[in-house]
Design a protein around this nucleic acid. Structure first.
Length: 181
DNA sequence: CCCTGATTCGC
DNA sequence: GCGAATCAGG
């Protein structure tokens, strides 16, 4: 895959926007994240800022490289579009989903934080925390700091902690991967 | 384990 | 110049 001006330009754009190398590689298609990082360095683009006191990356630089380059099997990265419960979502994933119009918990352990404010939900049974059972949807509704806070409480599947509706919101596929020719 | 960027060096 | 392999972290 050539680094055409077009692709380089897109690389610069996405990199400056803070996307990770792997995400950029996914968008460009046909290149690995290593290729992206390598290109970034070659272009002398500013690397990622090291925030809190840890940046001995360049200080070390004493790796060992075996003189035996094993035949590297390429992985064509063609996974099936499986929808798996990804509870950990990165900022970019959330940003993409936000356009869908559906309210979605931004944080992993506590979806509560994201639902503060106006949440439009089909129907809730307005259950308190202590009234939740194994079969009631545990999707939080409203502001936990206010007293009108409650949980959805609808019937949920045996496995999922949420009802069918909220399970869709909670378990959005990472998606936004595949983008190649 | 997943991920991140950084670096080296054979090609 | 390219990028896989590798390192070093989170």
């Amino acid at each position: 895959m050539n680094w055409t001006d077009e692709r380089v330009e897109k690389l610069k754009k996405l990199w400056s926007e803070g996307l990770s190398a792997s995400q950029i590689a996914a968008q460009l298609g046909g290149v690995s994240r290593n290729a992206v990082i390598g290109k970034v360095h070659r272009l002398s683009l500013p690397g990622r800022a090291k925030a809190g006191g840890s940046a001995p990356a360049a200080a070390n630089a004493r790796p060992k490289r075996p003189a035996t380059p094993a035949p590297a099997p390429q992985r064509p990265q063609a996974e099936a579009p499986r929808i798996l419960p990804r509870t950990t979502m990165r900022p970019n994933d959330v940003a993409v989903m936000k356009d869908g119009g559906a309210p979605v918990p931004a944080e992993e352990t506590s979806p509560v934080t994201a639902t503060s404010g106006n949440v439009v939900v089909p129907m809730t049974r307005k259950l308190a925390l202590t009234q939740l059972t194994d079969r009631t949807c545990k999707w939080p509704v409203g502001d936990p700091m206010k007293d009108d806070f409650h949980f959805c409480g609808n019937d949920c599947n045996e496995n999922s902690p949420y009802c069918t509706y909220h399970a869709r919101l909670a378990y959005q596929p990472s998606a936004e991967r595949r983008r190649m020719r």
